[in-house]
Amino acid sequence: MSEGWTREQMAARTAQDIPDGSYVNLGIGIPELVAKFVPQGREFIYHTENGMLGMGPPPADDERDLDLINAGKKYVTALPGAAYFHHADSFSMIRGGHIDVCVLGTMQVAENGDLANWSTGAADAIPAVGGAMDLVQGVKNIYVITQHTTKTGEPKLVEKCSYPLTGPGVVSRIYTNLAVVDVTPAGFQVIELAPGVTFEQVRSRTGASILPPQ
């Protein structure tokens, strides 16, 4: 039985859906890989919430600038045409609806588009929200990229999130290793299966009802 797409393939599949000229914010983890797969003929401008538009790929080790980092605090570069700005301007871009696409990782997504990706709510957990709640409320299209299940096989696509929400009803599309899934008024709707993956396989690993590809 096929396990579907690799992380890179998931990222590449996500990039296919981002229109030319989009302003894009990528979350930490698998979402960062999306930048490696910009389809030919398209240009995306990357926003990092710590204050830059026009973020480029990581530098060579000997070309690092300690004051040029992304929101994940990794060293990055500035492309020609880049701009720096302070945090209030950066989140005006987010909250003000100026960013077109945000790709985030997640712990859970519910069938109504609720996203939970910041805290398990456990008593000993140290809550850390960063910019996730601002992004999900402000960016026009919220895409989630995630393994279909947790490492222990629990569904991440669920009827209702058990973890505290990052935002209610904010997710429009989900890219997993098994399928591309839209959040619709009727619930989860598979729009594409990864090569070799069956709908039954997707359904059995989803914690909510899910509609087959049309």
């Binding site: 945090h87 950066s90 709640m133 601002d134």
Partner: peptide, 17 residues
């Protein structure tokens, strides 16, 4: 975790604003 420091968690954009 030892209860020796208080934390107010504020989303990043709300903190900036």
């Amino acid at each position: 975790r030892e209860g020796k420091i208080e934390l107010e968690i504020v989303p990043q954009g709300t903190l900036a604003e």
